[in-house]
Write a protein that binds this DNA or RNA. Structure first.
Lengths: 333, 333
DNA sequence: AACCTGATTGCACAAACGTGCAGACGGGTC
DNA sequence: GACCCGTCTGCACGTTTGTGCAATCAGGTT
């Protein structure tokens, strides 16, 4: 082909420059491209613009949630792994296919993209969404696709401050992106991840500013979180980021903690009674978390397997999004 | 580009040739392509196959309904035309964007594609779908995308025989395609479009074989039909295809008929009382049709505008899929 | 009017994609 | 074993799509 690109001599019969033209064109283009199978060139002619503009209109249509693409495995014959996980652990599994040859950070990225797209369709109006923070959630938040909703709220699940920073910029970035993608209010939780003294927590928990957040958490319709894991390979953010001192880490060990969800710790059997640190943690009580009707856990990387097992034993999740490698480890052992 | 195509030296580490490999790969490919934004080349590497195979896997995934693409106009700021139609006529309108420069048959084709894709997501298990026949429905039936359902039934809305043929091959092809796309049973209605004598209809309507179909029609959860139109330009199939003789056409005129749905006629004001031909027609009683909870009317081409107005006045449709030109004519007059 | 600044456009090129074709494979038949 | 026929594969090629860049436009400021 000799690069007879774009439109040759159009743009002579100008369309009225109507208001809101941009997004109207995006909708038209999307309909013609995805519903009528026209090529971008054909669409460009009908829209009296250049093909490259159509390409951009379409990518805008995708980014703003105007176009939604779903991949649904006909549940009756879903991949074996997902079925096994559902049977063994009682959660709806979404296994992200990845070759085992790729790097951990790439796996995280791909799990995050797919998680973001899986969450999208579940997002609803009038929802109250609890969101944790951490490297997993951060990755997810970068790939959310827009979807307009009314009267929904994003609420932070646990404080993010530590001894060095208030953690606000990090956690709030995550929340902000969620809020923006879904057109939702954002409610931050401006407390440290852990109090130094359990008594301070008790006191703060009586404050009305805090109770407002706790109240929202109680009414959550959906919660989204990763897991932290102790004991195999790389420790998660919480265990190395200045949130806990040496003494804390020792008590975790004596309490036989294997992991955490939103800085609330649990043991391999799923129990969380009498784990000292939880009395100072600002995460949601795990019994309360279990009352939320949709609880989505995102996990990437096999180093999290111990924490994940604990979380599953505790029944913290209703939906589990994880990479294929971890899924395999989970069932084959 | 120097055509550095497809994978250079793969296919040495063979994967196990598992059963059902094909559709599993299609699912994996679809997830990686649509959910993770990998290129087909990258997918080919992970799947240990060639890029072209991935391309084919993906088009298979789309064709079998594994991937579903939706374009949703955020109803609050839907295109003006759709809003006006909804207000004026009380139906949910889906306007198919087409430039006014293209030919009638092309318009029909594009309306049909978009109609097929619009119907797809509405299709459900345990549904009983009534389907009419005619050039519009025929076009739609060619573009249905597969979607597996359980225990659903496609039932023919009106007989298709005429004096020359039993009409079976034509109408049944349409039904067959619907049935195949949705994995549904197909129930044909083996009667002529019109009886010569109303008495024959009365008699036949008591036959158990016919009652079975009528019973299904009574329990329809969805109906899909076009409209026939008299009086402007090209007459529809029914008016020229050997179904009616001159005398019949004359009675239609004296009865002030403007169009039909599934060979049941109505006037411009939507009424259908005392239209003689209806007593001999095998289409569903219009009062009964109105009890179906979802009634989708597909219209392409401005020549149908008169019939369409009548059908809307009669309140026959809950959803209307039509081309932009007709939509404009509909509101601007 | 002159000037800046950010958004938007079309172009040119490179990357990604779809598909006709010929060869390879599989399994049934003579 | 030889043969046939339908299916699947990779290749080559042409087509379609994404994107950096420079020119242009819109609207606000000096």
């Amino acid at each position: 082909m000799t690069t007879t690109n774009d439109l040759p001599g159009a743009d002579l019969a100008g369309d009225a420059p109507l208001p809101g033209n941009r997004s109207r064109d995006a909708l038209r283009a999307a309909q013609m491209y995805y519903l009528q199978d026209l090529t971008m060139n054909a669409i460009a002619r009908e829209l009296r613009t250049s093909r490259s503009t159509v390409s951009r209109l379409l990518s805008m249509a995708r980014a703003t949630g105007l176009v939604q693409i779903q991949v649904n495995n006909p549940s009756d014959r879903a991949p074996a792994l997902e079925q096994q996980i559902r049977r063994r652990f009682g959660v709806e599994a979404h296994v992200v296919p990845v070759a085992d040859s790729i790097s951990d950070s790439e796996v995280l990225d791909r799990v995050a993209i797919q998680a973001a797209r899986t969450i999208g369709p579940l997002m609803d109006s009038n929802a109250i969404i609890g969101v944790a923070w951490g490297s997993t959630l951060s990755a997810v938040s970068h790939h959310l696709t827009r979807k307009q909703t009314h009267d929904s709220t994003i609420v932070q699940l646990n404080g993010a401050g530590n001894t060095q920073t208030t953690g606000i910029t990090y956690a709030s970035e995550i929340l902000r992106r969620f809020g923006q993608a879904y057109g939702a209010r954002v409610e931050q939780f401006p407390v440290p991840a852990f109090f130094d003294h359990a008594a301070t927590k008790t006191a703060m928990w009586e404050e009305r500013s805090v109770r407002r957040i706790l109240d929202l958490q109680q009414r959550m319709t959906m919660a989204i979180f990763g897991v932290g894991s102790i004991g195999s390979g790389i420790p998660s953010h919480v265990y190395s980021g200045g949130y806990l001192d040496r003494e804390d880490l020792e008590t975790l060990e004596t309490d036989e903690v294997v992991g955490d969800v939103a800085t609330m710790f649990f043991r391999a059997d799923g129990s969380h009674r009498d784990i000292l640190l939880n009395a100072r943690s600002t995460g949601p009580d795990l019994d309360q978390l279990r009352t939320v009707s949709r609880r989505i856990c995102v996990v990437s990387g096999e180093s999290k397997i111990n924490g994940l097992r604990g979380a599953l034993a505790a029944g913290l999740a209703t939906d589990l999004i994880l990479d294929e490698g971890s899924a395999r480890r989970l069932v084959h052992a």
